[in-house]
Structure formats: structure tokens, C-alpha cells
Amino acid sequence: MSELEVQATLSRGERSRSRGRRVTPFEVLAVVVALFLLVAGLLPGLLAPGDPLGIDPAAAFQPPSPAHWFGTDESGRDIWTRVVHGAGTSLVIGFAATAIGLGVGLVLGTIAGMLGPAVDFSVNRLLEVLFAFPGLLLALLFILIFGPGVWTATVAVGLSASPGYARIIRGQLLAVRRSSFVEAATVLGRTRRQLLLRHILPNTLAPLFVLGTLGVGQAIVWASALSYLGLGAQPPAAEWGAMLSAGRTYLTTAWWMSFFPGLVIVLTAVAATVLGRAIERRARYA
């Protein structure tokens, strides 16, 4: 914030600064959800000691009860256990897909931003073609070629998110490249490599941390959507999207089969968004 803005909006500035620091109840909830997912992902046995794949036909279609918190499915598998064990898969997909998206985006964005107008033009037209298709459609196309599965779904989600990242990275990079501190470093006699590695990239990537956090939630939702369509994780794997899809058939008689997987997908996405925004706000007012 410039000095002027601060002067002109003293009162507003004061308020927004304190707003930047205050932790809202939603943020606390989001942190709790994130911690839960992390524990579930790393040590699922701690929260649900049972076997996510172990069937017990005698206990099929049981509604939520103290014995089965989230009920059981058509084969008598405990939904709670499966949801907890599914967290790991979802998190790996979410992080891996975001990493792929950011990685590809970073390469494309840096090429476009650093290698001159001709390259910039070409990369931009390529990105526009990719933008013309909805992300999920791109992912479907990719799976059509390489076949369904957890890893193809992950790569597919990552690739379809990458044009967006590339655009943002390119824009950020161009802005940083023209900033006066890069100019000052040029005056000090820095080489292009030094400029890029020491000043331009670090300052381009800092805001991406926020985008990445938001992206993880998005990627989890997308991967679940692909699994739901039968293109990602395959039954009987404990994966939220696949579970949601399996419960669809019994929606009228056993609502819990799809409700609880759906709930965690929503909670994860919301938590990632709230956390991303919280980090963004703090970064801005820091």
C-alpha cells in the first residue's frame, strides 16, 4: 500500500490491517479439517483401525450407529473406515495434480515471459486453444487416450489445470521483470540468469503458494469427479469419488453411502479455499 492510500484511507487501512491478523472461526475449522485429513492420510489406522476393503455381508446397509459411525455399504464395509482410508488417496491426487499443474505452468509461463515476444505469442495462442475447452473435458480426453486409473486421472487433472497457472505465472513474471528492483539489479551488472533465479522467479512464485493451496482443493474435487464417472480410482478402492458413485444406486434406501463421502469432499474443498484465502490475506497485509 502506498503512503498516499494509507493517508487517504487511514481509518479503512487500520481496519483492514487488523482484519488481516484476526483468526476467524472458519479458519479455525478449516485448520481442524486440514489436520484431520493429514492424520487420516498419513496414519489412517489411528482413526479407523478396521480394513477398508474387508467385507461382512451380514452387516450390509446398516445406517449410522455407534458401531458404524457412517453406516455400512452393500458389502458391509464400514463407510467411516473407507472415508478415512480414502483421505490418503485424495490428498496424494490433490497434491500431485497441483504439482504437475504448477510445474507445467511454470515452464510454459517462464518460457513465455522470458524468451521474447515471438515465443510469448506462440505460447499464448497455445494456451488460448487449451482454454477453449473446459478443464474437465481436457482431462476426459487425456483419460480416453491413456485409459482410466488413479495416476492417469492425477496427470489429467494436473494438465488441465496447467494453462491457468501458466497464464498467471506469465503475467506475474512480466510484472516482476519490469519492476524497478529488477532494473536496479541490471544497473548493478547482473546477468540474465542471476536476474531470473535471484529476483524474478522467487518473486513470481511467492503468490503461487496461495494459488496452490486453492488448487489442491480444486484438484481433489476434480479427481473425485473423474472417479465418480468411473475414470479414476476403480471400485472397490476406498476413494471418495468412487464411493459416491457406488452409493448412487442406493440413494433412496441408504443415503449415508453417498452422503458421507460427499460431505468430506465438500469439507476438503471448502477447507482448502478458506486456508488459501487466509494465507493470501496475511501475505498481503504482512
Binding site: S180, V187, L188, G189, H199
Partner: peptide
């Protein structure tokens, strides 16, 4: 030109903007 750059330095109106924010 880089070999000659050390011979000429600069200071700017917006000193803050001329430093890497990190």
C-alpha cells in the same frame, strides 16, 4: 556492457521499489 556497469551506479526516487521485497 556488463564489464563497464560497475563504473556507473544509480539511486532512485522510489528507493523502496528498487529493492527486492524479499
Amino acid at each position: 556492457r556488463r564489464a563497464l556497469r560497475p563504473a556507473i551506479g544509480a539511486i532512485y526516487q522510489d528507493a523502496l521499489g528498487s529493492f527486492d521485497p524479499r
